[in-house]
Design a protein around this nucleic acid. Structure first.
Lengths: 235, 235
DNA sequence: GTAAAACAGTGTTATATAACACAAATTTAA
DNA sequence: TTAAATTTGTGTTATATAACACTGTTTTAC
């Protein structure tokens, strides 16, 4: 959080995407290194919007991103929280569709852009690369299925508890082993959990009263992970 | 529907899965023909269950299948309705996961089973095959995202209207150009639309009163497709 | 450094939909 | 071919959660 820390941060390179770089041959690696661009985004930047056409593969080298769809009456539904190293926006690329969700920066990002033709060429010669994307997408589809059920069937407490558990999985804790390593508005928390902002606030308060969480502004500490998971499971 | 018709039906072969067969070389085709099995399932058969381990790729050659997850308090959520020729159960295969949903036969099926090693071997030599599965899965993920939003945000009328539109897309009409070519219980309709059976029945009745549908038992005619789509869109 | 905007928090009310309970009709099985 | 089970249909009640309306507090921008 300290401003000083930021200036010391080392900028990642595409070599830091192991799922991508590690499986390439020497020749493929140099082809990739010569044929990608590195982009820097700051907080609140939009990386792509709903109905944009994908131009290539995006790899999140550092930073945090939320992926969301606009629903009924502008109400937004966050469908995924991405962390580095992750692929983003590749569903639309491989489906040969337009984007069906938007991506917005939550914490400053380094993103590698690999043009469609480049990544397709690599996939032609390297079957393992296709398998990587396939596996990644299959995991996401599994998660999407799981969430469809829980967001429609669990009660408010269960939905919020589950979202917090997911955030813990994706971003982990700070050094203290308790503080969630994301800094989200109540509204984002609500949009990730399919509820109104008021209800997210209220439910957060009950979790604090029950000593499951400690909350200080947007800083959330998970005091009792087991109970949180239990609340999530029982809906 | 006539019993006689059934006995005349020709049994499909794996050549009838164009997304798979058409993109293979002669050599690959004969390898595939020698290394798959054809299975027949009847109504209400379970093809696989939640937490089963996938053993290979399943291709639906004929028939109709529902894919569902069990949610809170045994309540089932239908996440997909499959029609021939479709791949089924391949998400778990490629994610190297257990199945996270179950598949049940709605109308008698012919299914081709291609062992994991066989399909992986083909994917090693044929990059286009990987792309086929990738595209298929990307489309499904898009659909899943879309549904998450509508099932959580649309009202009951919009959800049921949307489900009927989806069924029309997937299974189409009978020869009369109006009758939905699936025969589902009210409960299945409800489980596909995230509502109780009573509410599915009631809402169906209001659609009949509004002359959008005509219903005779489980036979549903869509009288006014435009209005149905409008109801679906407006939520 | 101040004004404006966005966000957090809380109480109250309204409402969509689940839950329940039962009757009638249809299908299944013995 | 009769009984049992399942499915369909309808009315009533209960309740979870959205919607609304404010106030106080941060953050942002000029």
């Amino acid at each position: 959080m300290a401003a000083k820390k930021k200036s010391e941060e080392i900028i990642p390179t595409i070599k830091d995407i192991p799922n991508l770089y590690n499986i390439l041959s020497e020749e493929e690696r140099s082809y990739l290194l010569d044929n990608h661009t590195t982009l820097a985004y700051k907080k609140n930047d939009i990386i792509y919007r709903e109905s944009d056409k994908p131009t290539g593969l995006l790899c999140l080298g550092s930073g945090k991103v939320k992926i969301f769809k606009e629903g009924v009456g502008r109400r937004e539904q966050i469908v995924r929280m991405a962390s580095a190293p992750d692929f983003i926006g590749y569903r639309a690329l491989f489906a040969e569709d337009l984007h069906i969700a938007a991506a917005e920066v939550i914490e400053p990002c380094t993103i590698f852009h690999i043009p469609r033709t480049v990544i397709y060429k690599l996939m032609q010669t390297n079957p393992a690369l296709s398998m990587t994307f396939m596996k990644s997408m299959a995991k996401e589809l599994g998660f999407a299925r799981y969430r469809t059920v829980t967001l429609t069937q669990k009660h408010i407490r269960g939905r919020l508890a589950e979202s917090l558990c997911v955030l813990k999985e994706v971003y982990g804790y700070e050094e203290d082993g308790q503080t969630l390593s994301v800094y989200l508005s109540r509204e984002d928390l609500a949009n990730f959990s399919n509820m109104t902002t008021s209800n997210a606030i209220r439910t957060l308060t009950t979790f604090v009263n029950e000593k499951v969480l400690a909350v200080n502004g947007r800083v959330i500490k998970i005091l009792d992970e087991d109970t949180l998971e239990k609340i999530s499971r029982l809906g």
